[in-house]
């Protein structure tokens, strides 16, 4: 039973999962399926995040969801020591990176490696962890290793 569902690895983040809406559903369903999906404008081809019903770059209003590699580069990062939320308690201190995705958008993402191993300019890849049986969340990890 539930053999096809990957194991829940990070249940502590369940309280932080946003509610699904018409706008964000495809993004979260993508993560649950193990992939990063971004909206792409059918008119100008630009990828965008967060999702909207219009393109941020051109007058286009037709957007399609596409699975992307979601790799990128650390533009800046911090190391959080303060216990702001219990979900992150056992991960302290943890890194929050501003990631410049190769596809264009910038995203924020937590990284759970040794903070000293993180630097601006380093290449990162998506790290998708299952939070509940049917929801997953996006973090980042170094491309190497």
């Amino acid at each position: 039973m539930a053999a096809r569902t990957p194991a829940v690895t990070m249940p502590e983040f369940e309280p932080l999962l946003p509610e699904l809406t018409d706008l964000n559903r495809a993004y979260w369903e993508g993560l649950a399926a193990g992939e990063v999906r971004l909206q792409r404008c059918r008119r100008c081809g630009a990828y965008q995040y967060p999702p909207e019903s219009f393109c941020y770059h051109c007058p286009g209003t037709e957007l399609a969801w596409e699975a992307v590699r979601g790799h990128g580069e650390v533009y800046s990062f911090i190391v959080v020591h303060q216990r702001y939320h219990p979900a992150f308690g056992e991960h302290l201190p943890y890194v929050v990176a501003t990631v410049q995705l190769d596809e264009g958008p910038r995203m924020l993402g937590a990284m759970f490696e040794q903070p000293a191993s993180i630097s601006i300019g380093m290449r990162v890849r998506p790290r998708i962890e299952r939070v509940t049986e049917d929801r997953a969340a996006l973090f980042f990890a170094p491309e190497e290793g």
Binding site: Q82, Y84, H85, F88, A137
Partner: peptide, 17 residues
């Protein structure tokens, strides 16, 4: 908002970035 899962809370974190 959705950035909570990225671990970003409070103004100090954003200014630190």
């Amino acid at each position: 908002g959705d950035d909570a899962l990225a671990g970003l809370f409070g103004a100090p974190s954003s200014y630190a970035m």
